[in-house]
Design a protein around this nucleic acid. Sequence first.
RNA 1: CGAGGUGUAGCGCAGUUUGGUAGCGCGUUUGGUUCGGGACCAAAAGGUCGCAGGUUCAAAUCCUGUCACCUCGACCA
Length: 480
Amino acid sequence: MAKEKKQEFVQHITPRDENFSQWYTDVVRMADLMDYTPVRGCIALKPYGNRIWELIREELDRRFKETGHENVSMPMLIPESLLLKEAEHVEGFAPEVAWVTQGGGEVLQERLAIRPTSETIFCTMFAQWVQSWRDLPMKYNQWCSVMRWEKTTRPFLRTAEFWWQEGHTIHATAEEAQEETLLMLEVYRSFCEDVLAVPVFSGQKSEKEKFAGARATYSVEAMMQDGKALQAGTTHNFGTNFSEPFNIQFQNKEGQLEHVHETSWGVSTRLIGAIIMTHGDERGLKLPPAIAPHQVVILPIAAHKGGVMEKCEEVYSALKQAGIRVKLDDRDHLSPGWKFNEWELKGVPLRLEIGPRDMENGVASYMRRDSFEKGALPLDDLVSGVKALLDSIQQGMFDLADAFKQERTKDVFNMAELNVQVQQGYARAMWCGERECEDRIKEETSATSRNMPFDQTPFADHCVCCEKPADKVMYFAKAY
RNA sequence: CGAGGUGUAGCGCAGUUUGGUAGCGCGUUUGGUUCGGGACCAAAAGGUCGCAGGUUCAAAUCCUGUCACCUCGACCA
């Protein structure tokens, strides 16, 4: 009977390998991360999902400050005239901008865009704030939400409003701007891999795929468990593309006016989608300890029996004192089996059980969410045991994801091979650099160019598509 | 934006073909017994049937429109 019921429960999550998209939406809903709202395509982050985002923010913000950035806050509304100043930029964003046309019942003289991104307003303010070479660089970041009126939406991956950070910096020289662009790309790469345990491909976007208005765009691209690509973060070098129309100038050491060189970079709540689709399994979410709202959950077994709750509370305090994010699940109307499943669904990395039998043995039983491995930790040295397990889980999750990524990435030498490979993962190919070939690959395989790795050592001499001489190494994949 | 599908209690669904009192399971609340992989008994609460119009004595059910969500495409950063 119990077994039948359990199966019934598990069936609520669509099997991952049967229908990955459906599995994803099931997990998002059941893990209680978000909910839909009355506004089309706009989601509400619930406490659990919001907490994950908070932890991501804390960790990223620390890294931004370490690299010399400061936070600012800009207005949500952008006058249309500002948006129109950079031609490529407006062309790229115009179709998905939401507009405010009235305020307090009066029709506005100029309609205001709800920011789809803040380059234009940053540029406007930079122009007022910079005068001398001594003012440079200005390295600012803001945490906010932006709005893009998307045709189809999907929780975390593409929503009409989403939460993100956008860094905007201006520099005196092209070299400095390029250095900043690559530095922030590296911050994103190490954040994804070391904190989220999400291995990524780091490299430069093609002309076709770069940001509207950028001279060069770089990205970190993750691989989901269905083999598809997810762009996890981007950095852009604008050169003087924006500083010229916005007239952001400074006086150099020689007393002459020069335009600044600008960069921007961002990551969003899409990272939460990346975590789910990189690590999740048939039982639900699987969170890396570094950003798990609860790193450890303590479950009392037979809580009414003497000393069990007291011991749980003691362990809870000790772990909390040691700086571990710990949850004591003392709800007494739920059976242990129920709680096991619920916390597994929510992705808690480590479960501790404390019951009469454990107390006799002076241990706490544990189970790792990553490998389901069970064991026991001595109560008198619990903190160091838990810390070691959390470290091991963090590493184990990365290693598993990285092995998957490598297994699903192959070199291809012609269109037939490319077509086969992008059905299940990333294809590394030699590419001539022509837009025509990129378009043809998209048309025939539905895969797009992801990015060019920094190691551009050729492994063949002709283009995967047109067979003409090629010197660019490019990753292709189907993308979210 | 195109093709297909779904909207009925917090969640999962039946009822729609053939119009006639709003149903089931889980969860929730209260009381009690339990507790090492989704426990049990008893009682109770909970629904504008997505929304708007129409047909009818009567609409969850038939008709029209509309909105949202899901799947696959297209588009996009």
